[in-house]
Design a protein around this nucleic acid. Structure first.
Lengths: 253, 253
DNA sequence: CAAGTAAACTGGTCGGACCAGTTAGTTGCT
DNA sequence: AGCAACTAACTGGTCCGACCAGTTTACTTG
């Protein structure tokens, strides 16, 4: 009684097979970032397909963030190293199209960012700690100078946390979802933030997170970050969202 | 002293502008999933570009998971509803190309899966609970019947947890990273699992997680999942990975 | 009126062509 | 001989026109 499981008999498109072959060559390390693919005209003879087909395949690979084409370049399309851009784009699309609720986004961010703080508390080095401290101080100084430079300092602070977590996956996803939340909130409501009071609250929260990370207490860092973010977003969530939040951050009660 | 900030003067590619316009129309809800775009020949007159240009744009949108083209369809490319596939693809690519370490992947999975368990403990309904129980029982029954059907039951169990978390973002990312871990481990080492003993351990772990979720205790559910996954992967991680794990799962000590 | 067929579409692929930009090799000048 | 300017070759971006195989629609025919 051998269980045979047939797979969908999908028609094979020519350009897809070109994509497959090149993608395999890249992810397998056969071609490494920085190297160059053959030119389109060279590829069309190697694959025995027409140039439009080659170009459609290259466009797909480009939208996956795997390669970049530059006209005039004598050396053909360049193989890129990782970039968070296509992932961020997917996140943004999902957030907007996929009926992804603000609740889900906020929960996701809480999970990622508090975990990053836990990791950072243990893995951060002096240089990264210095960056965080510097960013917090700049936030403090910029409270009076309008929201633009303040927000930049705020972003720098969070970026240094991601960096200190030593986990690129956390960083990329966290930053992507943070951006999506900003977009979603910007279009849903007037940003009630940007007032001096809200800025001072932000500084206080970030300072608390910084202290916990600096002390090396991962539990405290996680708890502080969790409750800070939770409290910040709680007012925007519905009842079920609040219940979920309490499950993620029991220390809120 | 007004701060002007110039943006990169990127040359505007024709097909990119077509992508932009269609993408905007889709994410803004102007065209909803299930509806159809005009045919390629119709699009080329609307955009005043040639068909190759239209096709390159459609290929990009297709690789983003936004549309699907089917030859012969009288109604043009269909606008799709969300799918996790492009996101999963991005994850897989990042995992393999981006020098993403197993440590990072495992940390990420622990964070997502334990959080899903916390949420599921509070938000799960009876039907989802039933699914989990059913899956665990099937795992138990299939221990003797080879790894194939056992793994299927295992996957079903985790899938029902994701479902019960009521957070699609967690689910998509969690499943994507789980797949990447499997791939990475499969090619790095012989799968030492699949033995009856390893299967029984899995059953025991999943049963513990199930009990915690069923009891509605989110803290216990999170702790159980965290330590279960951590213990499972600990042997594969390096020293820094272990330190990070301890930061994420203090109850391990 | 029903069944079958033919015409009018669809997307997939191909070949050839032109343009603007970059680059490398060559030429010409000092 | 060394260096600068120029030219020719090649790159990707865009376009045109054409053909094929498949599906859908509408018409013709029994």
């Amino acid at each position: 009684m051998s269980k045979v499981s047939f797979s969908r008999a999908v028609p094979v498109l020519t350009y897809e097979r070109v994509v497959e072959q090149i993608e395999r060559a890249i992810v397998s390390g056969e071609i490494t970032p920085g190297q160059h693919l053959p030119s389109e005209r060279e590829l069309m003879v190697q694959f025995s397909v027409s140039r439009p087909t080659v170009r459609e395949a290259l466009r797909v690979l480009q939208s996956l963030g795997l390669i970049a084409s530059k006209p005039g370049s004598r050396s053909g399309p360049e193989v890129l190293s990782m970039s968070s851009e296509p992932l961020g784009r997917s996140f943004a699309i999902m957030a907007r199209i996929a009926s992804l609720s603000l609740t889900e986004l906020v929960q996701f961010r809480i999970v990622l960012e508090s975990s990053a703080c836990q990791l950072a508390a243990v893995l951060r080095n002096e240089e990264q700690l210095k960056k965080m401290q510097n960013a917090v101080q700049r936030m403090e100084a910029e409270v009076a100078n309008g929201s633009d430079s303040f927000n930049r300092a705020d972003l720098d602070f969070h970026a240094s946390i991601w960096e200190a977590s030593h986990n690129d996956l956390l960083r990329v996803c966290g930053q992507a979802v943070s951006g999506s939340i900003l977009n979603l909130m910007n279009e849903r409501m007037e940003r009630s933030a940007d007032t001096a009071g809200a800025m001072r609250d932000s500084v206080e929260r970030d300072r608390a997170i910084y202290s916990a990370i600096a002390s090396g207490d991962s539990v405290a860092a996680g708890d502080t970050a969790r409750s800070a973010i939770s409290r910040y977003f709680a007012e925007y969530l519905d009842e079920e969202g609040i219940r979920g939040l309490k499950a993620l951050a029991p220390e809120l009660t």
